[in-house]
Design a protein around this nucleic acid. Sequence first.
DNA 1: CTTCCTGCAAAGGCTTTGCAAAGCT
DNA 2: AGCTTTGCAAAGCCTTTGCAGGAAG
Lengths: 163, 163
Amino acid sequence: MRRVTEPPVLDESGLDRALDRLRQAVRRRGLKGSSVRDAIARAALQRRGHFSVDDLLKELRERGVTDVHTSTVYRVLPLLVEVGLLQMTLVSAGDGARYERAFEREHHDHLICTRCGKIVEFEVEAIEALQREVAERFGFRLTDHVHELLGTCKDCSAAAARG
Amino acid sequence: MRRVTEPPVLDESGLDRALDRLRQAVRRRGLKGSSVRDAIARAALQRRGHFSVDDLLKELRERGVTDVHTSTVYRVLPLLVEVGLLQMTLVSAGDGARYERAFEREHHDHLICTRCGKIVEFEVEAIEALQREVAERFGFRLTDHVHELLGTCKDCSAAAARG
DNA sequence: CTTCCTGCAAAGGCTTTGCAAAGCT
DNA sequence: AGCTTTGCAAAGCCTTTGCAGGAAG
């Protein structure tokens, strides 16, 4: 069992590799290139941690990329996920989708404090192995999983005990 | 690792025990009794498998309990979950909440075919133990978890291979 | 020149909220 | 009586969709 630490922001060469992957996927599917899509990918890939669609729109504006419409982001994100640049996370929160970078990033699950929102990222190879066993046992080909542990962190537990 | 089978529909005495638990919780919180709330609880507890708010409304109408408004169901469900009568599931589906009975029902996680929607319920004690270890290691008090394995079932894999 | 992409506006689907009437204790 | 619960209608939020003009190959 180990804690997975947040990686540094993707540097320029990492960004190039990511955009290459995107371009290849775009070509393979017979789609067309687009500077807007690239800008969205860049903004998403260089954001730290978890972000919502709205966060991403703000990030774009901060980068001077104005005029990118919400609906466009909604249309582009699924592709970025399929291609493996991003992944959807924090599904249990309920209020809107959250994304995080998946490209050149270790796999991990989340331990979430439901009081303060603190998030610990971890990885337990034994759990992953067991998940694969479960899928195999029931004849499934595993493509993904959602695994979030919900609880109260030490600080919040202490606060609750005091107050 | 074992498959968890769906339990039989809760019988009358089970329903009584469940409603007792609900009444006690209601009293403890200084709330008031309500036949509408009880009817919602009854309908929810006797439904098979997973259901949406809409399914529950239909179930109520089939039982002749008309006039129960959607918003009331939305207001009642959280209590039923807190009290342990129901639990929210299939979070990863995205489109609206799904519930299932939790009262006098074994804990289990879900293996879901993303093509046909087939659901296998399973339980792996080793995974549960590891989850507890993770929480402890990071100072969290675990209250819940979301654990869904997503993939393609045998039939759908075969269909995909053919077509 | 054909097909895809994008901004815009509108619609959709699920859920929440404000309010007044009705229901409990 | 005093507080909770409920139906109803309206609003909220996130997300999707239809369309027309613009961009890419």
